[in-house]
Design a protein around this nucleic acid. Structure first.
Lengths: 205, 205
DNA sequence: TTGCCTATCCCCGAAAAACAGGAGTTTTCG
DNA sequence: CGAAAACTCCTGTTTTTCGGGGATAGGCAA
């Protein structure tokens, strides 16, 4: 029984690279590839692979959303996230959206094959590096902001003062100040400047 | 006369992908690849290709620095920058450091071959997308900051107040304030919060 | 039901930043 | 050289932020 694998990546050379890596593998059959969300979904309407290798950074839509869509339509397909960078926020989101594993694009052939063989059994697979960075990243966890805090944060970063934010959100300036204070405390910032920097680094704005 | 091409990328599948793309091209000969700065430099000590395809995001050191090094040691080698993202700051830096061209990793085979053939003649090559985004990015030009401004900016973004920055740089708090004012004006920010956000977006911090 | 969280609002005082000026010295570069 | 740019410092005033408080109300879950 060969494992049917489909690739979604908008980089032609990555597709070629994967194809070349998996060519030698008798147990794995590449059934196609897509460079866009649409062509991926239309392929799946006709044929379902066992495993999809999904780039996390697609041009139009993030691979994260596409994964969620696919998992909803075809729960039987296992998705392996693929990305250049080892950023725990992406990894978490990907796994939350139905992916069964995550590997970096610098994987070796052995590791990729191992990953595919693992997730097709319904198990999870994280490459060593990824798993390590997930553990390492547990300390500087990204705090969960409430909707209001997120709004206030965005407006503050745009340069609005408490008063201006208040006007925009139709709340009292003192309320905005309260949100600002909890933002400072949640993100462990000592003032607005460091708040914005930290938020930028955590991709919150 | 075949063109000797060398690849520097820390992603195995990208190397494989390029190899597969260029395999069919009789006029191009792949003479090797490197996944690290060291192995690249040691290869070059023995043999010099005509063209190096250089990933801009290497793990250890940025491809930008490595390009500068290579151009210094072997001015005759032409470098083609390679990256997943179309960010004008990277592209500019790459070109400033001796690269002869820049293409995104989603290039087609034709475009890649075209790029290699172009730069080996000593001309510059930018893929359409890249050139377009460079033009589009000319408006929000990144202002040149002076050394002092850069220092002050960094410390402000870390959350230091004027007084603290002053202490650290051994200058008067009022001077720091002056620098801050010119930063606000240069980056077109209305206060520190927006200053930090803009600086983060421009990769200044 | 009793908490907990979110969101809302308020007060105070101290500290910091923003705004508007002016002005001297050193460095850099054509 | 000489001008421009960079760096330095100053005095004010006004506005905003920050660090303490404390309070009410709704939703939701143990």
């Amino acid at each position: 029984m060969t494992i049917k694998v489909f690739i979604v990546d908008d980089h032609y050379m990555v597709i070629e690279g994967i194809r070349s890596l998996l060519q030698q593998e008798a147990s794995i059959e590449l059934v196609g590839h897509a460079m866009s969300v649409d062509s991926c979904l239309s392929f799946l309407r006709n044929q379902q692979p066992d495993v999809i290798l999904m780039d996390i950074n697609l041009a139009e839509q993030s691979g994260i959303e596409l994964s969620a869509t696919i998992k909803r339509l075809y729960p039987g397909i296992f998705i392996l996230g693929l990305s250049t960078f080892n950023q725990q926020s992406f990894i978490r989101k990907m796994m939350d959206n139905g992916a069964s594993g995550y590997v970096l694009k610098n994987v070796t052939r052995e590791e990729l094959v191992d990953a595919i063989n693992t997730i097709v059994k319904g198990k999870l697979y994280l490459s060593h590096e990824v798993a390590r960075s997930l553990r390492a990243a547990e300390d500087p966890e990204v705090p969960l902001l409430t909707r209001r805090e997120q709004q206030v944060l965005t407006l503050i970063a745009e340069g609005l003062t408490n008063n201006e934010v208040a006007e925009k959100l139709f709340i009292s300036p003192t309320t905005v100040d309260t949100h600002r204070k909890s933002l400072l405390s949640k993100l462990n910032a000592k003032n607005t400047a460091s708040l914005v920097r930290i938020a930028a680094q955590l991709q919150l704005i």
